[in-house]
């Protein structure tokens, strides 16, 4: 990055460290922090949407839909997460490629799955072998987002299902007495009121999501844990910047990063809880009313 860094073997002390920390490989490491942030920020709303759909399906009056919603939450909650993280991307990738294979490939008479190999013609590959590496990485990232969303969506569905049941029945009955339809009751009364009950569960999920991001590494996405391990491992003279095993320092850095992320999340979530409790028929809402009343008197 700097002109002085052209010959690292001549450098010492602070200038060596400065050049070391700005090497191309370190830039990839810093970039991977953005990958992790992007994963959290994309996964959270997608998982919430999965959860919302799952919860509404589980409460549905249509029996098959209710089975679907309940089956989804029961299945994902019952099977170890790691199985889903490994299974969903592979199944999705091969499934998509198989569909494209049926559509794009001339019939060869060869089975797609044979001898443990998965063979589709070159035109059916996603992305194509000829496309630049960045597309392969983006595709891997997208598969990871789906895997995370499926797993976290099931937990969110259960949280939201519980929250919807926790909204006092009297509130809904009053709305019905005003002549609102089932749909209107859901939209105007049930959903706005359930958030205050859902937030503790959802905030737990968000914290778990932050700490689950190193699983990206399992899915072949080069995340911060991959780079910390790669950069920290012993570097012999074959590298431009040789050093002994420094993994402990890189992992300490990651520890600070995760602590900072969870701390910031806690602050934001506690503000959100206070905001959502306003005017609610809950203990937190009651406490806020008393505070406001006391100040007025």
């Amino acid at each position: 990055m700097f002109a002085t860094c052209t010959d690292p073997s001549q450098l010492e002390g602070l200038s060596w460290l400065l050049c070391y920390l700005t090497s191309g490989k370190h830039m990839l490491f810093y970039g991977s922090f953005l990958v992790v942030l992007a994963l959290m920020l994309i996964t959270a709303p997608v998982a919430l949407a999965f959860g919302f759909g799952g919860a509404l399906a589980a409460r549905s009056h249509i029996t098959p839909l209710r089975w679907l919603g309940k089956g989804y939450t029961a299945m994902v909650r019952g099977v170890p997460d790691i199985v889903f993280f490994l299974f969903v991307p592979v199944a999705l990738d091969q499934g998509l490629e198989y569909i494209r294979h049926l559509w794009k490939c001339p019939p060869t008479g060869q089975p797609v799955w044979a001898n443990g190999e998965f063979n589709v013609c070159a035109a059916a590959k996603i992305p194509l072998s000829t496309s630049p590496q960045i597309w392969h990485e983006a595709y891997g990232f997208a598969l990871a987002v789906v895997a995370f969303s499926v797993v976290f969506g099931a937990f969110a569905a259960n949280v939201l299902y519980g929250a919807m049941n926790a909204v006092p029945r009297a509130q809904l009955e009053t709305a019905e007495a005003y002549g609102m339809t089932h749909r209107q009751v859901s939209r105007r009364i049930l959903i706005p009121q359930m958030w205050t009950y859902a937030l503790p569960g959802l905030s737990n999920l968000w914290m778990i999501l932050i700490k689950a991001t190193p699983l990206l590494f399992l899915l072949g996405v080069e995340d911060i844990v991959y780079w910390a391990r790669e950069l920290g491992s012993t570097k012999s003279q074959i590298y431009a910047y040789p050093h002994p095993d420094w993994r402990v320092w890189y992992f300490l850095g990651l520890l600070c990063y995760y602590l900072a992320m969870t701390r910031v999340s806690e602050i934001v979530l506690s503000r959100l809880t206070a905001k959502l409790s306003r005017g609610q028929a809950t203990m937190a809402g009651e406490a806020q009313r008393k505070m406001a009343g006391g100040a007025g008197a």
Binding site: P8, S23, G24, K25, M27, L28, A122, A123, L128, S129, T130, E230, S233, S236, I238, Y239, A240, Y241
Partner: peptide
């Protein structure tokens, strides 16, 4: 596509001097 012949070479990148990721990240 077959004629374009892009071959994707898979390696570990953690076994010097056979294969490793250099300081440029390649």
């Amino acid at each position: 596509f077959a004629m374009a012949d892009t071959v994707r070479m898979g390696t570990e990148g953690a076994y010097p001097p056979y294969n490793f990721i250099n300081d440029k990240g390649e």
